[in-house]
Each structure stands twice: as C-alpha cells, then as structure tokens.
C-alpha cells in the first residue's frame, strides 16, 4: 500500500496524540511512523505522520474533524525534505571493526559508543540513506536499533522559482 507523509499542526493540549492515533486506528489506517514535537509557536505542535491508507483524502478529512487539529499538509516526496535519526548497535567482534567503520564513514554515521564487541552509530538523513546503511551493516549483526520516525517539511519551492527568474 502507498505510504504518504502528512504534516499535521495540532494544538498543544493534553491527549492530542491519543486522539490522532486512536482516530487513525479506528478508521483502519495504518501508521508507519509518527513523530511529534514543539514548533516555534508556543501553543502548537507538529506531527509528522507516515501513514498507509488506500484513501489519503479520507485520512485528511477525518483528521480535520478533530477539534485540536489546526492544519494538515500532505507532503509529496519530491517537494519535501524528509529526515530520520537512527541509533544502531552493530556487532564488531572478529576483527570486523575497521571494515564497519569504513562503511560508517561513507554514510556519515557517527560512532557514539564503542565496546570490545560492538559499536553504536548515530546516523541522520533521508529514510533511504538510513535504510541503505542498515542493509549494509545487517550482515555484520545488528545488536539493537531504534529509529526516530520521519520528520519532514515542505521545501520553499515558490521562493526558489522566483529567484531562478
């Protein structure tokens, strides 16, 4: 099913996250990831929701019915900057440390914790880059990992075009 990214501006009130996730669940929409945090406005938070749904229009309309949802923007992948953070601990015993560190360098993954048997990396970037790194280190053995979920904002396409002229 198609994945879509929604940027949802919500009032910063108790229980809003529960309202949003409960609504998506009861309408049968599958949440792939959901990241939430404050914005520059003190009373507003932004949720970045990656959702799998056959009818995105319905997702947007249903979310809009929530009293605490202020604005919903559908982010298309071309006009959007999407970023994700992953912390991943890779097994590095048996003399594989150098090989893994070289790989990490290519991907700009930063070692943040090293032990005799494993290295933890922090990697930030578009989901594709993060996933590619994950695929390449997987054969070495992943001890554990955590992802932040996607955050995304639309590019300033309008102003850029104006400059190009």
């Amino acid at each position: 099913m198609k994945e879509s990214t929604l940027s949802v501006l919500v009032e910063d009130k108790a229980g809003v996250l529960a309202r949003v996730s409960s609504l998506l669940a009861r309408r049968g929409f599958n949440i792939h990831s959901l990241a939430v945090g404050p914005t520059s406005e003190p009373h507003l938070s932004r949720m970045t929701i990656v959702v799998e749904a056959p009818e995105l229009e319905q997702v947007k309309k249903q979310l809009n019915k929530l009293v605490n949802v202020v604005k919903i923007t559908e982010l298309d992948q071309v006009q959007t900057v999407e970023q994700e953070v992953m912390l991943i601990r890779v097994a590095s015993g048996g003399g594989k440390r150098t090989e893994i560190l070289e790989l990490a360098q290519i991907f700009d993954a930063t070692p943040v914790d090293v032990s005799p048997s494993s290295i933890m990396f922090s990697i930030t970037g578009p989901p594709r880059k993060v996933n590619d790194f994950l695929d390449l280190v997987r054969p070495h053995g992943i001890v554990e990992l955590v992802k932040s979920g996607r955050v995304a904002l639309a590019r300033d396409a309008k102003n850029r075009r104006a400059k190009a002229v």
């Binding site: 108790a14 229980g15 529960a18 309202r19 409960s22 609504l23 009861r26 019915k65 929530l66 009293v67």
Partner: peptide, 14 residues
C-alpha cells in the same frame, strides 16, 4: 472517561 469516550464523542474535555 475521556479515553473511553474519545471515539464516542465529537470532542471531550478533562
């Protein structure tokens, strides 16, 4: 109560 009635109300408050 607000959790239980979340899906049974247009909106609710605590």
């Amino acid at each position: 109560t607000t959790g239980i009635t979340m899906a049974a109300t247009k909106h609710n408050y605590l």
